[in-house]
Simulated assay, not measured.
Amino acid sequence: MAAQNHFHTGEELEEPDWFEKALSGVEGEAIKTIKSFERGEFPLSETDRWAFSYYMALQSARGPDTRKTMEYLHASMVRLEIGAGGRKNVGRWIRRKYVVEPSPEQEDRIWEEGIQPGGPPISSTNLAHIQHLVEIAQELTSYLATRPWSLVRFNRRSLITSDSPVSLIRQPNDEPWEGVGFATAWGIAFPLTRKLGLLMSDPMVVLGGLEAGDPRVQEVRSSVLRGDIDRIEAGTTAMEKLFNEHAAYSAREYVYHHPEDAGFVPEDLPEPNLINIRAQGGLMGMDFDGEPLFHPDEHQEGHDDVGEPV
């Protein structure tokens, strides 16, 4: 990601690099927090816990995979709209979407590009990407802050990281095909340095089966945010493998490690993948032959969506 120039600049703004400057400020504070972890200053105050959780949430959302996934899903939905409407209704779709009168050549191009595998070529602006990742980071922050934290110190073994450094660890009884999210993960791992990792464990364990409306739930939440349940533990071989295998599995394009730590990189690395969610099956996966999938009601026949004759 660092090799992509102007990935977070907004040319539409008076100060195009404002977000890069904001990120630098957040990262600067995070570096101070990590250095305090190295000195054994743990747990954090509640204020610092929220700030560091937001930093981790940004690390999870800011990568090129977030942007590529957003563009892919947008293109998939456009493909469905165009394909389901059928070839004869492409002009109607263009008029409704862009308020222009298309030429026959434009209709042909939109149809061909629209129904191709993956949908039409769609690129989001840097500003749209920034707005999207900030929204995601804000939503994810609480899932990180409200988990019990374990600061894991390694002596002889080392940690690797990747271009997607926040790793989700699925529940032990989950099937391999089941998805895992920030709300449902057994754990969330974040390598801080070669010798220091942060493991955020399942908050449901500390709730002990309490129902959502039980007033004790808020008490437990407050206790977690104060760091009452946080701990520092010595890193083991099993813990190193847990961190490093999930770091490698979560990578989108690149795995990073110190030159001396090549031996800690798992052998079976995944293929590069910049799209986190695939729209498959049903209408999303079908081929379109030009015929509309749905027919308008009788009272709408002969008119498009804005009341123009067709």
Rank of each mutant, 00 (worst) to 15 (best):
P165D: 07
W111A: 05
M70H: 03
R221Y: 03
L151T: 03
L58A: 02
E308C: 02
A185S: 15
G86S: 02
R79I: 06
E139L: 13
M239F: 02
H6M: 15
E46P: 05
T193W: 12
I277G: 02
L192V: 07
V255C: 06
H257L: 03
W93S: 08
F37E: 05
G28R: 03
A212D: 08
H258W: 00
V78S: 06
G114T: 06
K97Y: 00
A183H: 13
G181A: 12
L127G: 04
L274D: 00
G281M: 07
I31K: 10
S124V: 14
L23T: 12
N155Y: 02
L283E: 02
L283G: 01
V205R: 14
K32C: 03
S123A: 14
D305R: 02
E81A: 11
R156D: 15
R67N: 05
D163I: 04
R231D: 00
N126Q: 14
P172C: 05
P104C: 10
E240C: 09
S167W: 05
F243V: 08
Q171L: 11
A247D: 03
P266G: 06
R92C: 05
H6W: 10
T236W: 08
S222E: 15
S162E: 11
I130L: 09
P64D: 03
L144N: 04
G91E: 12
K68M: 07
A234L: 12
L207H: 00
P176T: 10
E267Q: 12
M1W: 05
E101F: 07
G118W: 11
F154L: 12
V220Q: 08
V90Y: 01
R87C: 03
V166H: 01
P309W: 03
G227F: 01
G179A: 14
A3Q: 13
V152D: 06
A185I: 15
S158W: 05
F37R: 07
F288I: 11
Q300M: 13
V206Q: 02
D202P: 13
M77L: 13
P292S: 02
L274G: 01
R39T: 03
A247K: 13
R194P: 08
G197C: 14
S222T: 10
E178G: 00
D202C: 13
D289Q: 02
N5Y: 11
L151Y: 07
W50F: 15
T69E: 10
P165I: 09
S223E: 14
G197Y: 10
D230G: 05
V217H: 06
S250F: 13
L192Y: 04
D163K: 07
I232W: 01
